[in-house]
Nucleic acid binder design. Sequence first.
DNA 1: GTGAAAGCGCTAACAG
DNA 2: CTGTTAGCGCTTTCAC
Lengths: 338, 338
Amino acid sequence: MATIEDVAKLAGLSRTTVSRVINNHPYVSEAKKQLVIEAMKQLGYVPNSSARSLRNQKTEMIAVIIPRVMNPFFGQLVESLEIAASEYHYQLIVCQTLYSAKKELDYLNLLKTKQVDGVILTTLLNDWKQIEPFLDYGPIVLCNEYDQKANIPMVHIDQEYGGYVATTHLIDQGHMRIAYCCGNIKSNVTKAREKGFRKAHSEHGLQIDPKLVFQNVFTFEDGKKVLQKLAALDNRPTAIFTGSDEVAAGVISEAKKLGIDVPTQLAVVGYDNQAITELLDPMITTVHQPVKEMAHKAMNVMMNQIKYKNYKTKEVYQLPLSLIIRNSTCLKSPERLN
Amino acid sequence: MATIEDVAKLAGLSRTTVSRVINNHPYVSEAKKQLVIEAMKQLGYVPNSSARSLRNQKTEMIAVIIPRVMNPFFGQLVESLEIAASEYHYQLIVCQTLYSAKKELDYLNLLKTKQVDGVILTTLLNDWKQIEPFLDYGPIVLCNEYDQKANIPMVHIDQEYGGYVATTHLIDQGHMRIAYCCGNIKSNVTKAREKGFRKAHSEHGLQIDPKLVFQNVFTFEDGKKVLQKLAALDNRPTAIFTGSDEVAAGVISEAKKLGIDVPTQLAVVGYDNQAITELLDPMITTVHQPVKEMAHKAMNVMMNQIKYKNYKTKEVYQLPLSLIIRNSTCLKSPERLN
DNA sequence: GTGAAAGCGCTAACAG
DNA sequence: CTGTTAGCGCTTTCAC
C-alpha cells in the first residue's frame, strides 16, 4: 500500500508538501499541487486513517448505544443518526446493549480507548454515577434519554406532554377510566410520560385506579396479556394509553378476539407513530416523536462537543411532539393536535 | 491521558515489558507483571486503539453496507451482525446507501483508508467490475446478495427454493393464475426467486401470464397499487406471491377495502417472516429466512478472511429457508414446510 | 526475563 | 512557498 512517503518520492517533493495538498492547505504552488495529485493518482494513494487518527487525536467515529436495532423506535433513531453522521463525514458504530447494563459500560470503553470521538447514549441502564467518570475521556451526549443529574448535553422529547396530550384527548372523548401501560419504570422517559398522564387526570378532577396501571409492558404479546387482565375486571376501563404501538397492536388484536370493539368499547392510544399504526384496522391513534430532528440535533451537539471539548456542561434541548388521531380512539376526524 | 510510557515509568520498567503484560505475552516474571498491573490500575491506563491499529495494521472494525436500517430485513441483519461481531470483539459500522450506487462506492473506501478490516455487502448496487478493485485493500464478503462473477466468499439464502416452495404451496391449493411481485429486478436475489416461481409453474405445466407480473414493488403502498391493478383485470388471479411482507400487507389491506376476501378470493404469500405477518388478520403465509444464521456465518467467514488474507477466493455458502403457512393462503393447518 | 531502539503513516512546528 | 524534524502511542525485533 502506498504511503505519503511514496507519493512524495514520486512527485520529487517532501512529505510535508504532500500532506499540505491532502489537507487543502494554502501556500502550495499550483504546479507542485498538480505534481502531487498526479503522483497520488498514479499510486492509487489514500491516506491511512489509523495514522491520521493517532496523529490528530480523532477518529471521526461516533458510537451510538441502543438496546437493539429491531426495536422500531431505536432502529429509526440509528437510521437518522447515521444519515446525520455521514453529513459530517463521520462514521457511526452501532452498539447494542440487549438491555444489559454491563454491555452499556463495555461500550463506553470505546471512549477510553479512543476508538470513537464521542458516544451517544439513547437509554440509561446504569446510574449516572457509573457513567460520569467516562467524561474524562470524551464527550457523551444523551439522545432521547434524559437525566436530571447528568452534567452533559441532552436532546430529548417532551414526554410529559406526550402523556398529557394523549390522555387529554381520551378524556375529551368522555373517557373517565383509562388504563395505563408503560415500559421500563426506571427510565426517565417513562416517568415523564406517566407524569403527563397524571397531570391530565388531575386537571380534570379524575382519579387513577391503580388496578389499571401496568408496568414493564413492551411487546405485542405483553399487550395481549394486558387486555386479558382488563377483560377479566369487574369494572373495565373504556380507554387505554399504551407505551408503544406494538403494545397497542397487541391490545387491539386481543380485544378483537374477545369481541371487544375498538374504539367504541375500548379506545386505544399507541406511541411512536410506527408504520404499523396505519396498517391495522382500526388505524391507531398515536404520538409522533420527531426522531429525525432529534437525531440531527444530537449529532450537531456532538460535533460541538468534539470541537470545543466542554464535555461537562449541561445543555438541555427539548423537542415537541404531536398526537396523531386515528380510528382507534374515535371513528372519524383525522386531525392533528400539537 | 496516560500512555504506556507513563505506566512503564511508574512501574519502574520498560515500555516493552508493559506491552508484554497488556498482550499476555509469556516470559514476564509474575512479580513485574503485578507491578505493571498495579501501575495501570493506578493511572487508569487503557491502550490507545489508534496507535495499536497503526502498529498492528488492523482496526477490529467491520463495515456493513445496507440500503437502510428501517427496512425490516436489513435491520434484522444489522442486529444479528452486530451481535456476531461483538462475539469476536469487533465493532460494526453501519453504512446506509439509501439505494445510491455512489454511496456504496464511497463506503467501500473505508477499506482503502484502512478504517475497517473488512466490508460486508448485503446488496449490490454497482456492477461487480466496480467493486472488484477494492479487493486489493481488504476482504469483502457478500451476505444475502449473490453474484456469479464475484471471486469472494458469499453467504446467502436459497432464494430460488423460496420462490419455488411458496409457489408450489399455492399451486397445491389449486391456484392456477398466480400474480407475482418482485423488488429490484437487477438483484440476483430477485432473479433467483423468480426462477423458483417459474420452475414451480413449469413443473405443473402451468403458464405465467405476463400481465400478472409486477416489478419494483417494495412498500405497503406499492402493494396497494398492485391490488388495484389486479382488481381492474377481467381475468383476475386467485393468488399472489409478493416479494415482502410489507407488500403482502398492502395487498391484503387494499383487498379488504375492495371487498375481496383473503384467502378465499385471493391467496397472498409474503416474504421475510417479519413481525407484521402475525399481527394482521388474516395472518400472512410467508417465507422465513435464517437471518441470524446467515449473519453468524458471514461474520465467521469474514474473520477467516482477515486471518488468512485470501481475499480473492470464491466460497459459496447457501442456507435453507422454510415456508410458514398461515391464514392468508389457507384457512386452517398451521404447518411448516421445509 | 528484560530493555533499547526502530518504525507503523501522518501532521505540524520551525526554519529557511 | 517548501523541507527538516520531531513526535502521536504502540509493538517487535534484536541484543543482553
